[in-house]
Each structure stands twice: as C-alpha cells, then as structure tokens.
C-alpha cells in the first residue's frame, strides 16, 4: 500500500528526515517510536503534504501513485488520514458544515453524488457512537473550546467519517487520560479491516497495549534504525532509548 524509499526532508533548511524507508501493507498496523526530535511528526507531515516541509530526496508511492506529486487534499481523497497531534481550532466553522464539506469532496473525487442531508446526519450519528462523542460537540465550531481528550476523539470521529485506507495517528495518546485513551483506541480497533492499514506514532508504549501493532520501528535521527515485533516496544519501555542511541552513534 505504502512504500517509502530513502526519504529526505527538511524544514527551513534544517534536515529532519535523513533517508527513511518503510513499507506498509494492507491489514497491518505499524508503530513508530523514538525519542523527541527524531522526526516522527515530520514523517506524518511529509506524508500528508504539509507545505512547511520540503522533500529533497527519495520517493513515496501510495497504491501505485507517486504520493509526493499530490496536493494535500488529493492525498486525503486518495485515502490518507492524519490524526493531528495538535488538532487545529477553526472558529465559526461548525463541525457539521466542516465534515459535510469534507465527505462530499471525497465523494466528488470518487465521482459519487453528494450525500443527502439525512444520510449524512445518519452516518454522523453512527460514527459518533464509535468514539462515544457528545452530540453537542458536533454543533460547535471545529475543535474550538474542546478539551484535549475531546479533540482527540474528534479526530477519530473524522477518521471514521472519511474511512481512510491508511490512517496515521500522530501522538494520539498525548494528553489523554486512561479512559479517553481506551475510547480512542477502541475506535481505532473497530475501524480496522483487512484492506486498510495504520501507522501509530507514539512516544510511549502504553497506547500499544490497546492498539496492538504488527511491527514496531524505532526512528532516530531521521532514519528507522531498528524494527521488530511488538516485543520491541516493551523492551524500549524498559530500557529507554539510550541503548539504541549508543548503538547507532557508535557505528
């Protein structure tokens, strides 16, 4: 589904990704872990086409398409979804209006008719239950005045609405208490199918108790320096990242 080869990217001239490679197939969950500043969030930004970052080298194919050539909105319409680490507030724009525009843009891309208001509301109601989201939130402005947990639940709700092929969860566990974490993880698990995939970016192992990965990768200094199964996450939890840093820097 997704193939990243030797990806280099910088922000304001500072190189963050220094030759990252990764392959994700349908049905898989990949966890990307690593110390602060390793480039985890940059990877999410580059995959979704955040204009603040510049790709200088390497290639990314997504379902046989050159991802790097697509605009951010077309990447979304192709099925890439990012759950933002810091969801953005958009004052005055109601969640309903926002989501309806997004859903219909996706449909237009797939040459489908826009969804009727009733169908949309029904779908919204169903998906909201998935993340136990309060009805009131839907009538408020996008993320405005939401608590940290509400914002993250809102991200997963949007993920359910847009039904992506590949979802990237960027530090979705940060700032969540244990109940919210369970709700968010449940939502993600319910959305898992054999034809979609997820990349879970996290600093801590605890999210992986709930969302069990098939692969765990350690990102350090702009590259994936170690890969393994879910047991690697436990080892990292126990030993921290220093031993990996030493291994790499010692090379």
């Amino acid at each position: 589904m997704l193939e990243i080869k030797n990806l280099h990217a910088n922000i304001n001239g500072k190189e963050i990704l220094k030759g990252l490679s990764l392959t994700v197939n349908a049905g898989e969950i990949h966890a990307i872990m690593g110390p602060n500043g390793a480039g985890k969030s940059t990877l999410a930004s580059v995959l979704t086409g955040n204009p603040a970052f510049t790709v200088t080298e390497g290639e990314v194919t997504f379902n046989a398409k050159n991802l790097l050539e697509l605009t951010p909105e077309n990447r979304s319409r192709e099925g890439i979804f990012l759950s933002f680490q810091y969801p953005v507030e958009i004052p005055g724009v109601s969640m309903v209006n926002f989501m309806r525009t997004a859903v219909n843009e996706h449909r237009k891309y797939k040459k489908l008719e826009p969804m009727s208001a009733t169908d949309f509301l029904r779908m919204q109601r169903e998906k909201k239950e998935l993340v136990e989201m309060d009805n009131k939130l839907a009538n408020r402005s996008v993320n405005e005045g939401f608590s940290g947990g509400e914002k993250k639940r809102n991200e997963i709700f949007q993920m359910a609405m847009l039904d992506p092929m590949l979802s990237i969860l960027d530090e979705t566990d940060s700032g969540l208490d244990i109940d919210a974490l369970r709700i968010v993880a449940n939502g993600v698990n319910k959305l898992k199918r054999s034809d979609n995939a997820s990349i879970v970016i996290t600093h801590y192992q605890r999210l992986l108790d709930y969302i069990v990965p098939d692969f765990v990768h350690v990102l350090y200094d702009g590259r994936i320096v170690k890969s393994g199964g879910k047991e690697l996450a436990l080892e990292l939890e126990e030993r921290g990242y220093d031993w990996i840093k030493k291994e790499v820097d010692g090379e």
Partner: peptide, 28 residues
C-alpha cells in the same frame, strides 16, 4: 492561518473552499 488551511486540506477540502469556510467562520 495556514494550519487551518492545511487541516482542511488533510480532510480533503481544497484550499479555495477552505478559505471560504474559514472566512465565513471568521465573519459568522
């Protein structure tokens, strides 16, 4: 706010429409 535009883009909304949404929200 470019973050707002990117957030909309990531949800599949074009920049033009995103600006329309954001401006209408701003003037709401």
């Amino acid at each position: 706010n470019e973050d707002q535009i990117f957030y909309c883009n990531q949800r599949g909304i074009s920049t033009e429409d995103a600006v329309g949404l954001i401006v209408n929200g701003y003037a709401k």
